[in-house]
Structure formats: C-alpha cells, structure tokens
Simulated assay, not measured.
Amino acid sequence: MMASTTDQSLLSSETAEDEEAPYRSLLLQATQEMQGAISREPQSKQIRPQPGFCLKTRTSQNDKVFVNVCKSEHIPAPPELSEQGLVSLLESEDPSGYRVPISLGEPHAEVDNSGNGCTAYDIAINTSFFEKIQANPLFMEFLVTVALEGLENKYGLELSREWRVLKNRKFMGLVMDQNIRTKSQPIIQEIDKSEAPKLSSETRLSEPQSSPEVPVSRILAEPADGHPRFLVAEIALPKVPSARSLVLDLGEDRIVLWARPSLYHLDIFLPYNVIQEECGAQFQRNRKVLTLTMPVRPL
C-alpha cells in the first residue's frame, strides 16, 4: 500500500556532474537484473506451524505476555553451529553475524487461567532447529533472546528477560496461519572502496539523539521528471562497523532498517512502489553509507 501522502522532499534531482557516474553504474546493474527477470513468483505463502511450547514473560508495564514458539519445515534452518561455536559467537564483539530465520506472527488477545486478559505472540522456527534448542539449554536461551528482541523491534515492546516455559500448555489461544516470504530480502553487499557520491552538505548528521537514532537519508529518482524507473536511497550510518550489524526489511513501498545493537532505526515510506526482488543494497564500509537501488514498478 502506498503512503497516503507523497513527500516530494524525499526526491532530489540536483545531482552534480561528478556524482552521476556512480549512480549510472548502480542503475545499469539494476536495469540488467530487471531485464533478466522473466517470471514473477509469489512474494509470500501461508503456512500453519505446529505448536511447540509456550513461554511467559512481562512487559515493562508488568503486563503478561505469552510467546508461542512453533515449528515448521517451511521455515529455513539457520547455518549449522556447534555449542562451542555459539559460545565463541556470544563472546565476540559482533554476535549479529549468526542469523536465525524466524517468522513473527501478529499479536492476539487471550485470557489466561485466572480469567485476566493478556496478549500472545506466535513465532515459528525451523523444525530441526526447534529440536536442537529442545535438547540444548544454551541454544534455547539464545533463541528466546533473539525472539524477544525480534518482537520488541517489530512491535515497539519492552519485554523482560525473565521468562519461563509453561509445563502444561503448548500454545496460548488457537494456532493461526502465518505469511512467510518465498523470496529473501536483498543481501547487503559490503564494499571497502567508495563507489557512490558523498552525501551533500544538506544531509549532514544532526545532533546526537536518544538511542536508537534515526539516520540521515535521502532518496533520488531517475529520471527526476515524470514516473521514475529507479529510486536510489542513501542512508548515512557513521556508527555502524560492518554490514553484519544491519537488518534490512524492504517492502513494496517501505524501508525498515535496524542497526544493532540499538544504533539506528529507520522506517520510511517510498513515494513509488518498487520491485522488491530486483532491489540491491551496498554498504560502503569506508564511508559508512548504505545505498539501496530500487527499480520502480511501471504505471
């Protein structure tokens, strides 16, 4: 769905002559990818996960929250990792390098055993990984931490890290279908050399804000007049050490970006619908700038 209003200030057609060549390269690459895409596969499909276990925690306002941890063969398994590998990862400076695919369902209102209202959230993970966390307390702790963080990021929650698994209940409420992507989000390619123009003086970073900060960004249209063929977004991330710290969710008309740990959060609507499966992302590590190249859907 498009945003109800289009903020034309997001679009910029004032590109200096020395800035045009890098964008031409990015746009040419996206054009070739678009011309090579023959079929359009569905972006998502519905699955019905199987109940696994239910855990209980609370919000910062002391409201009860239940998390239904489910399993499904349709969810990709994370890369194989030993317990020692997980320990080393957690002790490293950048533990975000290991990603666990999780489907986060919508919240639903329920009634607990005391007859009081509560909120339940459903998450789904790969079946084999579910069996792994069941057999290994360290992986269980890791999965719950990742899941709670994911729910906090998606729904703006603040959840306690004190939780317990319910003994006599596998699921709070009714099992509902979930939509999962059949196509992955664009992989963020990390490059050392500067291959894109510097942000202009009008996009200088503002004074430090409360964490996480909203990063400075701009969106350019190509061509600038009429219905564009591409959008190019630049996002300045001066505190980000590498692309592994970034979590990008690119929708048809929306960009959602998280930079961990709680460095930046960007959530903006695009002025045009883009072709998600043909978008590209590059993080220039030297300049700390993320560049998104997004082909626009034709009229």
Rank of each mutant, 00 (worst) to 15 (best):
Glu20Gly: 02
Gln185Ser: 13
Ala16Arg: 10
Gly85Asn: 09
Phe269Thr: 10
Val247Ile: 11
Ala196Met: 08
Val216Met: 09
Val289Phe: 04
Asp94Phe: 05
Gly226Asn: 06
Glu152Ile: 07
Ser88Gln: 11
Phe142Gly: 06
Val256Gly: 02
Met140Lys: 14
Pro238Ile: 06
Asp63Glu: 15
Met176Val: 13
Ser13Met: 06
Val111Leu: 14
Lys64Asp: 14
Thr293Ser: 15
Ser262Gly: 03
Gly115Glu: 13
Glu73Asp: 09
Gln43Asn: 13
Met176Arg: 15
Glu149Ser: 11
Glu152Gln: 15
Leu290Asn: 05
Asp112Trp: 03
Cys70Val: 00
Lys154Thr: 08
Val100Thr: 13
Val65Leu: 04
Gln209Leu: 11
Ser13Tyr: 00
Arg181Tyr: 02
Ala243Asp: 02
Val175Glu: 00
Gln134Glu: 13
Leu205Tyr: 03
Ser13Asn: 09
Ala236Asn: 07
Ala30Val: 10
Ile123His: 00
Ser201Thr: 12
Ser13Leu: 07
Leu10Ser: 05
Ser206Gln: 11
Asp122Arg: 02
Leu270Trp: 03
Val65Phe: 00
Cys54Thr: 15
Ser210His: 09
Ala120Gln: 07
Ile268Asn: 02
Val256His: 12
Arg40Trp: 05
Leu199Pro: 09
Gln276Asn: 04
Arg204Ala: 07
Thr293His: 06
Arg40Lys: 13
Gln43Pro: 00
Val216Pro: 02
Ala16Val: 04
Ile191Trp: 00
Ala30Phe: 04
Met34Leu: 15
Met172Pro: 02
Phe66Trp: 07
Pro101Gly: 11
Leu290Tyr: 00
Val87Asp: 10
Lys56Tyr: 11
Lys45Cys: 14
Ala196Tyr: 02
Val144Arg: 01
Lys132Met: 10
Ser96Arg: 12
Ser160Gln: 15
Val146Lys: 10
Ala233Leu: 05
